Computed example of a mutant assay.
Amino acid sequence: MTDCQGVAEGASTPMELYERLSAQGEKVRSLKSAKAEKAEVDAAVQLLLMLKMDYKQMTGQDYKAGCPPSDNVGAPNNGPAADGTGEEDTVDPWNVSTTNANGVDYDKLIVRFGSSKIDKELVDRIERVCGQKPHRFLRRGVFFSHRDMHQVLDAYEKHKSFYLYTGRGPSSEAMHVGHLIPFIFTKWLQDMFDIPLVIQLTDDEKYLWKDLTVEECHRFAIENAKDIIACGFDLNKTFIFSDLDYMG
């Protein structure tokens, strides 16, 4: 059993789990106020997220501080995977599927992939540190989790240098809106922090995994680069490269 499994053991009723959740939430706030080590804070947050998932599974309701569960609360009937006996959500670079009638459980994804939830506290800090309104993708929850964003903001406040890195696997001549969303957000990050950006085009990977020739993959990389450039990145601070060109 991992540290993130069975976190609700010993909490046999919704009220007991609610009380444990309240205590864990207070612990997270205390650690943050005391500026504890990042690893300690992250571990406490991960446990809090797991407790919230257990609470929702037990009560059918989202946990809300100061709102204890009622006596007659019960777990909901959410469809084929609601009882936990169905398959896990499948989320990888190629597939997204779920057997749950409510759709993909993003809180579980955050725990599985070891990221942290983008909460209002983080969005407010971005606005405070950068002096401008956070991107609508943050305000509307399109981007819902992160790794080390607080560390990035710390570096920015201390005027330490860093850079952005992202990429694209070119498998078609043109990029659609879904492909462009990360680049639209990256453009905003570059403008906000005024920093360099590296964009890797993995045309070699597409040659290995797709039924495409080397020439087709390289041509797609060039065409996709045009779409990326059209997002308006700073030409003096952006480096785009093809694996086939730079890595053979």
Score class of each variant (00 low, 15 high):
E157Y: 07
N102D: 06
A44D: 08
V198S: 08
V111L: 15
Q151W: 12
D89L: 03
D245E: 15
E223N: 13
C217Q: 00
T213K: 02
M58K: 02
V142A: 13
Y63H: 03
G248K: 12
L31Y: 15
A43P: 02
A81H: 04
G25L: 05
E215F: 01
T99Q: 05
M58P: 02
E121D: 13
C67T: 13
G167F: 01
D204M: 09
Q61E: 05
W188H: 11
P76R: 13
T85M: 11
M1P: 10
C217D: 00
P14Q: 06
K120D: 15
A36G: 11
S115C: 14
V41M: 15
L189N: 07
K237S: 09
F143Q: 05
K160P: 01
T99M: 03
H218L: 01
I222T: 00
P69D: 04
Q61F: 02
A75I: 10
D243R: 00
M53E: 15
R219C: 02
A36I: 07
E9D: 15
R140Y: 09
V91P: 03
S70P: 05
L201Q: 00
D227C: 08
K108R: 13
L164M: 04
Y106L: 14
G103V: 07
F137L: 11
K64A: 14
H218Y: 01
S115Q: 07
F239P: 01
S30N: 14
R112G: 04
E87T: 06
K206H: 07
D234G: 03
N224T: 06
L244P: 01
D92V: 11
M149H: 10
T213E: 08
Y165M: 08
V129I: 13
D62W: 09
Q61K: 12
T238A: 09
H135V: 11
V73N: 06
N77D: 14
E88I: 08
F144I: 06
R29T: 14
A155Q: 12
V73P: 04
T99P: 02
Y106G: 05
C4F: 13
E16R: 14
A34Y: 14
E87F: 05
W188Q: 10
M247W: 06
D203C: 02
V104N: 04
D3A: 09
L48T: 02
V45K: 00
A81V: 06
Q151F: 06
P134D: 14
E205A: 10
E88L: 12
T186P: 01
I126D: 02
G10W: 08
L122Y: 03
L109G: 06
G25C: 11
R128P: 04
M50F: 00
Q24A: 05
T90V: 13
E173C: 07
M192K: 11
D83F: 07
K56W: 05
E16I: 10
F144Y: 15
F239Y: 11
T85Y: 10
L208Q: 13
V91W: 08
S115N: 11
